[in-house]
Amino acid sequence: MSSHHQAIQDKLAMGITWSVAMLLMSTFLWLFSDIVIHGISGVSWEFLTARPLNAGREGGIAPILVSTALILMVCMAIALPIGLGTAILLSELTHQFGWMSNLIRRSLDVLAGIPSIVFGLFGNAFFCITLGLGFSIVSGGLTLACMVLPILIRSTEEGFRALPADYRLSAAALGLSQASTLISLLIPAAMPAMLAGFILGLGRAIAETAALIFTSGYVDRMPESLWDSGRALSIHIYDLSMNVPGGNANAYATALVLITLLFIINAGAQAIGHRWSSKRVLVA
């Protein structure tokens, strides 16, 4: 191939990728700006602190924010310890549990790919009905916990694997027990990765809708306990736009609140060094 040809093809490829990227950026900026423009007028202190009126057409989203927070709390309270324990087992003790840890890793890989609506079906059948928790914040939180576990575990496990092998060796050479090594040395050292996993999981959980429809329910009252049904932000958007004629204004405002929360979460992830890892190819 002549270098002239090459140069033309390179120009062409460059043109195509640039225009695709610009098209993509502008489409998404359209989406964002649409939501910001239509949502900003609806968001106010009152909107955040008032209860919804008239099926959500008027009023605010206070009970929905509270329910969302409670669902996330339940989710993380369950998922964090289980995730940490599993990640430690998979990264630090994998040789003691050989084939079992392999099996667990496979099962988590599959779990990560399961659609959220299937989690919803499972949550409904298992938590709501079999365990008798009903449509409640607990049911929703537990369902989400199952969903975010693979993310938490993967990120934490990678954090542990990234620790230098020296740490384990030198701790052992000092006569430290495995438990002390973990608690005093490895867990503190892997903290940033665990935090990154936590934030990723939080982002995934707060964005979730389909898994919550049949587990935490629709009720937009202020929840009185964890055993009450509670409506999450994402379900509020869905309900207002699909089932409530004239609910679009408040749906926009709620979407803006949700996206803002996700921005904050994302910024948190960036701040603790969950870095953009792809390296630019240096080709002449």
């Binding site: 230098p164 020296d166 740490y167 060796l169 030198s170 050479a173 006569g175």
Partner: peptide, 14 residues
């Protein structure tokens, strides 16, 4: 291991 200490090739402070 308390009675037999060890120093590695690469310094490895925590």
């Amino acid at each position: 291991r308390r009675r037999i200490g060890m120093i590695f090739q690469k310094p490895n402070p925590f």
